[in-house]
């Protein structure tokens, strides 16, 4: 379980995270929704320890990743995989090498095993053989996202943080990716934290949904509870009403 306590972070005088409290339950799929620029990516980066907060804690089974150093921090990071919003693929490596990278670097598996697992993951995200030897800058945005997804899943960690895994994908591919996430989740039971705007699809896969707004979690509950939430900000967001009130 991940417990976030009073997590706060200011950038250039602007409080992006302003006292976040949230529990991400073991083995669940938790989806974080919220407007663009509200700090969802910043929140994920604090959870994996890439950014350090001004205040607050991120407890992973009781261990605070914001204070961890050296070997402890490394051990905590090993429990995660992270799908970056823009993929963060290594541009000096081919698609195949990108997906195989975590296995080559972090495991002592024989090369034949690495090749077969990598091919399997690429097939799962519907990438054909021709793509294997291309470099990331030869791919479309949606393909990059799927390569990044394969690279996250191949690590088979306890926790996966997905930063907008389907943004920019066409509807059939969106369904493919969500289906893949639910399928792998059922198979290995990892804890998933997904940032996504895709309403209503996310209500079909989430165990819990949290909404981030103005630096805080303003709503948390099952998909049904969120849809029945009376807070007008939440209703606005999930109904997709235009924003007249803001700015």
């Amino acid at each position: 379980m991940i417990r976030i306590v009073d997590l706060s972070r200011t950038f250039n005088g602007h409080a992006v995270l302003d006292g976040i409290n949230l529990e991400i339950l073991q083995g669940e799929i938790t989806v974080i929704i919220g407007k663009s620029g509200v700090g969802k990516s910043v929140l994920l980066k604090h959870i994996i320890g890439l950014l350090k907060p001004d205040r607050g804690q991120v407890l992973i089974e009781g261990q605070d990743i914001t204070k961890a150093r050296g070997a402890d921090l490394k051990a905590l990071k090993q429990r995660f995989a992270y799908l970056f919003q823009n993929g963060a693929l290594f541009d000096s490596l081919t698609v195949f090498e990108n997906v195989a990278f975590p296995l080559r670097e972090k495991t002592k598996l024989p090369e034949a095993e690495i090749i077969s697992r990598t091919k399997e993951r690429l097939a799962q995200v519907a990438l054909s053989q021709e793509v294997e030897n291309k470099y990331p800058d030869e791919l479309s945005g949606g393909m990059k996202k799927r390569v990044a997804l394969a690279r996250a899943l191949i690590q088979e960690p306890e926790i996966i943080l997905f930063d907008e895994p389907v943004t920019g994908l066409d509807p059939p591919m969106t369904n493919t990716v969500f289906h893949l996430i639910t399928k792998t989740h059922q198979a290995s039971g990892y804890t998933a934290l997904i940032v996504s705007h895709d309403i209503p699809e996310i209500f079909g896969i989430a165990d819990h949904v949290a909404m981030l707004h103005k630096g805080r979690i303003i709503a948390y509950g099952s998909p049904d509870e969120i849809q029945r939430e009376t807070n007008p900000v939440v209703q606005h967001f999930i109904q997709g009403e235009p924003d007249f009130l803001e700015e």
Binding site: K74, A81, Y82, F84, N86, D91, E105
Partner: peptide, 17 residues
């Protein structure tokens, strides 16, 4: 620098490398 701004360095970091 490009690895920094495209988060490739962060990606290594999240893999504990």
């Amino acid at each position: 620098g490009i690895m920094r701004i495209t988060e490739q360095l962060d990606a290594l970091d999240t893999m504990a490398i």
